[in-house]
């Protein structure tokens, strides 16, 4: 099966980011960029599918040249090759999806795996838009993917409000990953060595002929309201008494 995995670099999610003083952006100095955790899960799933069904795993990202580093991480995990569409960081979700649609068509992928959400911009959009642009089925928030015997269909279990839901999608389809789909492997040292030699095709955005004029523009960023917090109580009796008499929430 030919699987395309769309990945995006994000600032390390374990670090709390700050808004720049002038609101023009986020302070990213000294914060390491990593593969978006949901995209890592997508890479892992693709590798497991390839291990079972054979085929090829192609990683694609849309962004600046520096994204090569995170692409190499995915290659080191075991992806076969990569495509980097060189573009600015400020493409909106519609534009990213349209660019990805071009790559999917060029590559004739049978399955596209991606994260449900980037943990920086938190849009949770690109996979579903891509599925619509391609006219393909979509299965979002996947916690389990099972293929039919002929590999032409898949049953995807989804994490939804109220529980779990399973839908059947005909392939080709777009599937977005949730946290419980798998636990991604670490890149091994030999994997990292091999990744350096794997094919990474850089495609200039302009060569794809996609209209990426922004429809959604992030104008500025502000820090959220800070909670006072830090209050302490000595014991349970004081806690309950304060909840009743001070906070008046009991």
């Amino acid at each position: 099966m030919k699987i395309l995995v769309a990945i995006k670099p994000v600032p390390n999610p374990d670090e709390k980011v700050k808004v720049k003083g002038d609101g023009s952006g986020i302070v990213l100095d000294n914060i390491k960029m990593v593969v978006n955790p949901f995209c890592e899960i997508a890479v892992e799933e693709a590798l497991r599918i390839r291990e079972k069904l054979s085929g090829e795993v192609v990683v694609v990202t849309v962004g600046p040249k520096e994204s090569e580093q995170q692409v190499r991480t995915a290659l080191a995990m075991g992806a076969d090759r990569a495509v980097l569409v060189e573009a600015g960081r400020d493409l909106d979700s519609l534009a990213v999806a349209k660019v990805l649609a071009k790559v999917v068509a060029d590559e004739q992928a049978e399955l596209v795996l991606m994260g449900k959400q980037s943990v920086d911009d938190d849009n949770n959009q690109v996979g579903q838009i891509l599925a619509a642009v391609l006219g393909w089925p979509q299965a979002t928030f996947a916690s389990k993917i099972e293929f039919a015997a002929d590999n032409k269909k898949a049953n995807v279990t989804r994490e939804v409000d109220g529980g779990l839901e399973t839908i059947e999608v005909a392939l080709p389809a777009v599937v977005t990953t949730d946290l419980r789909l798998n636990e991604p492997r670490y890149a091994s040292l030999p994997g990292i060595m091999k990744a350096k030699k794997k094919e990474l095709k850089v495609v200039p955005l302009a060569s794809l002929g996609v209209d990426t004029a922004p429809r959604v523009k992030v104008l500025s960023y502000a820090a959220p309201k800070q909670r006072a917090g830090g209050g302490r109580v000595a014991d349970v009796a004081e806690l309950v008494s304060k909840l009743k008499n001070e906070a008046k929430v009991l």
């Binding site: 700050k18 808004v19 960023y221």
Partner: peptide, 8 residues
């Protein structure tokens, strides 16, 4: 950014 920024 996990609620650490409010974008306009």
């Amino acid at each position: 950014y996990a609620g650490n920024a409010i974008g306009t």
